[in-house]
């Protein structure tokens, strides 16, 4: 069993004894800047666009539903179980599969459809990021397997950035087994440094900001 051997080696090398206390962790200052909601929204949209994603703002949940309806017309889609999507009426749109709670079925559907629709737990305006926590409401695969990802996010979930996220959520593991930060479409530059979008994850990301 290498566990005890390795830990013993580490302690001997560092001159520490088992269960010896440690000094306080160096402080990390998290700075949450004052930023008006309108500025957050504007920056979020600009960042998403800069990453070759699409960002739109709609005034109401009904408008969100209409926008989504326009996007998915003639295509197939899967929606996550996020209550917000249901409230918006997105899950009831024609061509949208939703309410899937079994992993086999979810995988099969996600692998086939054109678009995966989710909400997001937070958005980070200064990087154009969507923050997705796995839960009964949000799965991992809906934002991952389909070639396009569409996220419907109410304005009040837009944070300034990483510092605010970790201020609000200092311990993500207490809530979820998976928190994913999504910053733009999947991409690679592994062949001659030429940027190609949509390698393994969605090549298109659309963020619909509601409110």
């Amino acid at each position: 069993m290498s566990r005890d051997n390795i830990l013993h080696k580490v302690r001997t090398a560092l001159g520490r004894s088992a269960a010896q206390a440690v000094a306080d962790v160096p402080p990390v200052r998290l700075r949450v800047p004052e930023a008006a909601m309108e500025d957050r929204i504007a920056l979020m949209m600009a960042r998403v666009e800069a990453l070759a994603g699409k960002a739109v703002r709609v005034p109401t949940m009904e408008a969100a539903r209409e926008f989504v309806a326009g996007i998915i017309a003639g295509k197939t889609a899967v929606a996550s179980n996020a209550p917000y999507l249901e409230e918006c009426g997105v899950t009831g749109l024609p061509g949208v599969r939703s309410g899937i709670r079994e992993v086999g079925e979810l995988t099969e559907v996600c692998a086939k459809v054109d678009i995966g629709i989710t909400s997001a737990d937070y958005a980070l305006s200064d990087t154009g990021t969507l923050v997705m926590l796995a839960s009964p409401a949000e799965s991992r695969l809906v934002s991952l397997l389909p070639p396009a990802h569409l996220a419907v996010v109410p304005v009040e979930r837009i944070l300034t950035g990483l510092d605010e996220l970790f201020t609000i959520l200092p311990n993500p593991a207490a809530q979820t087994s998976s928190m994913v930060l999504i910053t733009g479409p999947s991409r690679t530059a592994d062949i001659e440094q030429i940027l190609v979008r949509g390698v393994h994850g969605p090549g298109q990301v659309t963020v619909v900001i509601v409110g």
């Binding site: 993500p172 928190m179 930060l181 991409r187």
Partner: peptide, 14 residues
């Protein structure tokens, strides 16, 4: 500014 995906994974599916 950030890589496209940052995954924070704590344990198996809950």
């Amino acid at each position: 500014l950030l890589s496209v995906y940052t995954s924070f994974l704590a344990g198996p599916r809950r």
